[in-house]
Design a protein around this nucleic acid. Sequence first.
DNA 1: TGCTTTTATTTGACTGAGTCAACTAAATTG
DNA 2: CAATTTAGTTGACTCAGTCAAATAAAAGCA
Lengths: 305, 305
Amino acid sequence: MTELSLIESAREFNRFYTNFLGLLNKAYLDTPFTLTDARVLFEIGAHDGVNAGALARDLQLDPAYLSRILKRFREEDFIEATPDPADQRSQILTVTGKGRTQFEELGRRSNAQIATRFDTLADGEPQAAVAAMRTIRAILDPQARPAAAIIRPHRAGDIGWIVQSQGRFYAEEYGWDLRFEGLVADVAGKFLANFDPEMEYCWIAERAGINLGSVLITNGGDGVAKLRLLYVDKAARGLGLGKRLVNECIAFSRRKRYRQISLWTNDFLHTARAIYQKAGFRLVSEERHRMFGPEANGQTWVLDL
Amino acid sequence: MTELSLIESAREFNRFYTNFLGLLNKAYLDTPFTLTDARVLFEIGAHDGVNAGALARDLQLDPAYLSRILKRFREEDFIEATPDPADQRSQILTVTGKGRTQFEELGRRSNAQIATRFDTLADGEPQAAVAAMRTIRAILDPQARPAAAIIRPHRAGDIGWIVQSQGRFYAEEYGWDLRFEGLVADVAGKFLANFDPEMEYCWIAERAGINLGSVLITNGGDGVAKLRLLYVDKAARGLGLGKRLVNECIAFSRRKRYRQISLWTNDFLHTARAIYQKAGFRLVSEERHRMFGPEANGQTWVLDL
DNA sequence: TGCTTTTATTTGACTGAGTCAACTAAATTG
DNA sequence: CAATTTAGTTGACTCAGTCAAATAAAAGCA
């Protein structure tokens, strides 16, 4: 049996969110659709070809009520229903062009509603809220399949994010002091200030608007590419993002005809080391340091291309 | 404008949670209460002595509809309504003993419903879900944030936050390119790398764990303190945070016996300029520049201490 | 002060979202 | 192949929720 205070907290949230959703659903006020209409149209639009039964189950609607909604949608020419050849009782529902237009309009309104709310928030708050939503969904919805992570070049704010997340992570996990964050900021700042798009690059791993990881290649001169600031957020470990990021670096460096990639890391970062090793990097030197407080073993690895 | 993929994620969560709440609200199926009845009774039970107006506002109900629900509750002897002595139009609502019994029964059902769901989860998952719910609530519920903003010294991650938020803000609002974020990272990195706690300082304005603003004083040598990177997030404008941050700078600089504070800003930052002016700063020079893309007027202001 | 406007709540008059039961017709079972 | 189950539809209804107008106290104003 779960602890009572947890349940009470969950109920409190549910009361709050019932209100919040009620507010958002006013987006449909001056459309010919009710909330239920919108949910139905959305579901058909999103899963083209569903049948009425599945729809009723997924949206928890009365079949009779749903049937009437679908009838209206058919009359209004928003959807088409063709009998399922595999089961003549069942019918396959698809949106028409007209229905899709409506579907998209509803989406726009819904987006605008949320955007308005998000725009009153502090920088980073929407990201934090969405990350929390994803957490809840992953826990409560057994069918939730997380969106795929993508890898993209950096844009405004990303470099700051790198400084922040690494600064915080190394402080929390390894007790490194703020000089480390200073170093990261310095590296990142120089990268931006002297950015040479021909020979340098920054990759950001992102999932649904939330940054998960980063790496960059800077020109070390003499044909050597420097791989720097490889990082994968706690929330995304084990998805192979680190490997994907390093592979991007290697492919880029090959394309740009660097002759070698060199990187500096610390021995306690086992996961990172495993990635480097597997990619063919070799350890060329190692030295004890106390650059950021606690003693550590700095290592230099290189990969000949 | 918030990023689209974030908004889409939030909508996806909302669709999911609409379903989820629909499921939970079946707890009222075999009671004489509708969901709205339950919400009303709960609200009166939780905030004994509310009036109808506040109730209608908080639960976003039609006053007419609410009035009828309250009438029924009075007839059933669940609540009592006494005219507010301070305002004879308004009435103070309290639950009776009978009403409290009902209220508690509803609570039990609601708890049981959630407990059933939670009991299917892995160890630690309910805790994680509830923590995420708190996060969302703290961000989205304007009433759940009576927390005052505090001003504190920087710690791990804060400097990165400064880079990120300013980088993003100036890009979105003024179209400045990434060289600006590079400059901020450089300034911030140098601050950390050469940090002299005797003569330098960073202030972070924070509310409920979320950073809202920043400023720092660096030693410009020759008795001159440099005020840098003043920033207040859009979610916290108008609260006087900018002024408080600048006042911290002035007090600190006086204490450390600097003879002057100098700062560089741009003319279009009206709010900041007003703060500097009011604090006694005077404009000493101005020059056009294109350091970050669009043309702008850089200004140097000083305050003699 | 008295007149006008605003605010808190109630009442009248609807309507249409959602429900329940019965029905048709195709598919499945044994 | 008769009996049962499943997918969807139709009839008949009701009650949650809405909109406009009324009441009456409070607040604003000239």
